[in-house]
Design a protein around this nucleic acid. Structure first.
Lengths: 366, 366
DNA sequence: GTGACTCACTAATGCGCATTAGTAATACGC
DNA sequence: GCGTATTACTAATGCGCATTAGTGAGTCAC
């Protein structure tokens, strides 16, 4: 009969010498004369479960102080099956050289809210730079290392996102994204905000209002139009296709003649949507200036969003501001809710009305 | 004889139902028809040790892709390996509302370099916001989750940093920090840059140059003075205490009279250090303007750094720029070196000379 | 005084991974 | 044909902590 060979102990190599290892819970336990589990219980401070006598607690805490014990976060997280990490993934560099186009305003809110909830953030880099985790079909695989992940920008590939969602991985998209079944998102409430701007104009006596928008189908655009029309309807003003102008290259441009035509037809207020480029507002603003309109005496202008940086110095446009930090915070709240399995939070964030100085009472009818 | 009671299995509760947990190496192994150890070996890609057949490797990698496996950073870290995560810790909010004071320019470089090297970044939040990882004596414990950590800002508490360093945890401080034995740091080479500015002025024929600085002992200040004096010496110009003016509230201010006095003594060029507030440059600039100096005809000015934002529109000051993104990148390089145990990288980053328009040939002697 | 209960604590276990001794299978040398 | 390498893998182990079933001592009720 063969005797089983004695096996040596495989596994960990001894800790590299020279490196002072920090004290473990076991050492604390030894010094305090209790078990490691007791140390964990004392430090964990769980609301329910085992009770610890005051004396034992003090002995343990004394030992902790005496040894300068610091918990190993890797071990805690491994044992607790969470790591308190929220991912942030963007397909352009998170910190672009051109600050103008960055996600900075969002990140302000993301950081604050994450901190308030005790999460740290993992920034997944190399999405654009071709670094380690460059493109490839599994570019998004890495995000699973966090408890959940926030996606910035509209370029997140649907297929991969769907995959994450299907696996039950908590994902939140910053910006509305309806086409992807089950994808959580947070976005600004453009509908209500646009409606409010129209209501403001209506209250100032304007009876004919035109929306100038670009010719795309982004949710951000259609929402604004939706809210605009809703605002007209609620004020009892004429809506319909005539109230909306979709500029399209090159035939349908917002020219000075067109603007004059509207004025002749009795239009007294114009609303432009905000776009990446700010072109709608720029065109409207430019045409009004060209025609010689004294704004807001002759006619009122409003902008559904913020002006492009180069027009920021002009008189502040009446309209609304997109609360980007709050959006970031709301995204984190939703993600945190998903991670902890709570009910999903509110996806819509209200925009704040900006009085501005480009809207005034409607000119007297003659 | 008492039979030992059969113990139930304590330990982990079963994973919460409903939520599909991420795949583990064990699942990958099952799908690939190999052992968990083999999966680890394939993924670990350690240079030495076991060899893996090409076929097995492919099977494993296929399974990894199929399941979307991603290693758990806490587990890798606990098992004494790396997790490809670099920490970034700042004691003020990383994304402050006031963009002016942010670390943004550094982060640009940090992100790029980290991406290029295949690291993701963990932003440790809550240092200022009083969130989960708020102050307390162990605010820094969390950073141990990452392979190493970058510290921004001068407020990192020495005691805790010392502790991390003593434990052999890779730490890099952005900004010179000599007082802490063994702390790695990267910083701008103010000495060489300041010296270069003086050399430039000397080459323009200036023979008497005065440095205006504030009265503190920050390394950034003393380095500039050091470089300034070195530059004078190298050009064979008079140095000594007379060449340096330390403004101090409220007695010693840079007044117009004082400036006139220097001019009368034959000083033709003035150099200010950059400070947080930009006060040195503002005072120098203001006094020169008040006295009616036509710069650079009557006298030359130079700034050891960048002007404060409110003076950015003025004629560009001759001086140097602090390459913040490069500093961030250098910090990451150093941290990566520490993490992988390589030789430490270069701690000093060169500043770039900025010709500007406030320095010209010395006025003719009369 | 015996069961039921509470209290305070400990033993045992596993989280997911990296590591290494061991092993089976095949190739090689002479 | 038998020892020795080499190759390709697996079993076993532990990292430091959180968790929970279990244990023993004490308290209480009837």
């Amino acid at each position: 009969m063969e005797e089983p060979r004695k096996r040596a102990r495989p596994g960990r190599a001894p800790a590299p010498a020279g490196r002072t290892s920090r004290p473990r819970q076991a050492e604390v336990a030894r010094l305090a004369g209790v078990s490691q589990a007791t140390v964990s219980l004392v430090l964990g401070a769980r609301k329910q479960g085992a009770t610890i006598s005051e004396e034992t607690r003090r002995k343990v805490l004394d030992a902790v102080r005496a040894l300068g014990y610091v918990p190993d976060p890797a071990a805690s997280r491994l044992a607790a099956a969470r790591n308190n990490l929220l991912g942030v993934f963007s397909f352009t560099s998170t910190f672009p050289t051109d600050v103008q186009h960055s996600y900075y305003p969002f990140l302000v809110g993301v950081e604050q809210e994450a901190a308030a909830r005790g999460y740290d953030l993992v920034l997944f880099t190399g999405s654009s730079t071709g670094g380690a985790g460059a493109a490839g079909p599994n570019a998004l695989a890495r995000v699973r290392l966090a408890d959940g992940c926030l996606f910035l920008g509209r370029h997140a590939p649907a297929e991969e996102l769907r995959r994450l969602v299907a696996d039950g991985f908590p994902v939140v998209h910053l910006g509305r994204r309806d086409e992807l079944e089950g994808l959580a998102w947070v976005g600004a409430d453009y509908i209500s905000a646009s409606q409010e701007v129209v209501a403001h104009l209506a209250a100032l006596g304007h009876r004919r209002i035109v929306l100038v928008r670009e010719d795309d189908e982004a949710p951000a655009s259609t929402d604004r139009e939706h809210g605009f029309l809703k605002g007209l309807e609620e004020a009892g003003l004429p809506g319909g296709p005539a109230a909306v102008f979709r500029s399209a290259d090159p035939e349908r441009q917002l020219t000075a003649e067109r603007l004059r035509g509207w004025l002749d037809e009795g239009v007294t207020a114009f609303v432009a949507e905000e776009t990446d480029t700010g072109d709608a507002w720029r065109a409207l603003h430019g045409a009004a200036h060209f025609v010689g309109i004294d704004c807001p005496r002759d006619a009122s202008l409003a902008l559904l969003g913020s002006p492009p940086p180069d027009l920021a110095e002009e008189p502040v446009p009446t309209g609304f501001d997109i609360p980007r930090p709050q959006l970031g915070a709301a995204a984190v709240r939703m993600l945190a809710a998903l991670v902890s399995g709570e009910e999903a939070a509110e996806p819509l964030v209200a925009c704040t009305f900006r009085p501005g100085s480009t809207a005034g009472p409607a000119p007297a009818r003659y």
